[in-house]
């Protein structure tokens, strides 16, 4: 009887998990399906999941509107800010573990505290400052803000990791004839890959997916990010759902692929952080 109950429980669990997966993935798959249907099939009743005559016309439509430039802008801002944030944050995380730094505790509190300040509440004063400094509506505005948001996370994730690397490892490299920089590059960085990847993936998701910073700090059409361009497109062609869903697909594909490839590091980074407090 106990055995039977366990089997029923197992079946219920699998069924519930399957249902949850459908609720979670269904809308995304539906968007993909819509983006591949021609206009006269989009509103078909009853709805069909598999497009009858798949077409790329909506994607072509987006290209005709120049959305690919916004895609490239997003990619540029993301890559620049993530590279900068991981380099600067990782360096700081390393120094906080290995070097005597004045006011170390205060700096840790600073990085930790900044992580819990909602960046959204700072956008308005930042906008005013950027206008006065002439950074508003330039290519610099978004990389600076994205990097500044990601740096504390990068510090935190890499610091926790560097602390677990035995000091002797780099001491051995120093004795073996390498400079401090070479020792870090050849011995510490290879071991720190998980933390660096977690920080970089987190930064990518943050920067690529942002809308509110981009829409408030950049105005020129040729500086727009992909999410901003999609919202503008919606404003002009609100009923062109095929093209809008093509935009959703384009905007979603990079972060989902990245997430699937690096999920281990991302999940690991966040679960370690929470368990260690």
């Amino acid at each position: 009887m106990n055995q039977g109950m366990r089997l029923t429980g197992r079946a219920a669990l699998l069924a519930a998990s399957a249902l949850a997966s459908v609720v979670v993935l269904g809308p995304i798959i539906w968007a993909l399906s819509t983006s591949l249907k021609s206009d006269n099939h989009i509103f078909a009743v009853p709805p069909r999941l598999i497009p009858d005559e798949p077409t790329l016309m909506h994607f072509q439509r987006l290209v005709a509107e120049g959305v690919q430039w916004s895609f490239l802008n997003s990619a540029f801002y993301t890559v620049v800010s993530v590279a900068f944030a991981v380099a600067v944050g990782g360096t700081a995380g390393y120094a906080l573990v290995r070097y005597p730094v004045p006011a170390k505790r205060a700096l840790l509190v600073l990085f930790m505290g900044v992580m819990s300040i909602p960046s959204y509440a700072l956008l308005l004063p930042t906008q005013v400052i950027f206008v006065r400094l002439g950074i508003f509506d330039t290519r610099l505005a978004l990389p600076i803000l994205y990097a500044a948001h990601v740096i504390p996370f990068a510090v935190w994730m890499t610091r926790a990791h560097f602390a677990t690397v035995p000091r002797e490892l780099e001491q051995a490299a120093l004795v073996d004839g390498y400079s401090r920089f070479e020792a870090v590059w050849k011995v510490i960085i290879p071991g720190a890959r998980p933390a660096l990847i977690a920080a970089a993936a987190f930064g990518f998701l943050y920067a690529w997916n942002d809308y509110i910073t981009a829409t408030t700090m950049v105005e020129s059409p040729d500086l727009r990010t992909l999410p901003v361009a999609l919202i503008f497109f919606q404003g002009f062609h609100g009923r062109d759902w095929g093209a809008l869903m093509a935009g959703v697909v384009i905007a979603t594909l990079p972060p989902i692929v990245l997430f699937l490839v690096y999920r281990r590091y991302l999940i690991g980074g966040f679960s370690e952080g929470s368990v260690k407090g």
Partner: peptide
Amino acid sequence: TILLVPWAMSPIVVALLWKW
């Protein structure tokens, strides 16, 4: 992993998707 997929998406894009 499946449940986390939407978390990898942009909030504004999620809004657009659900509007549809």
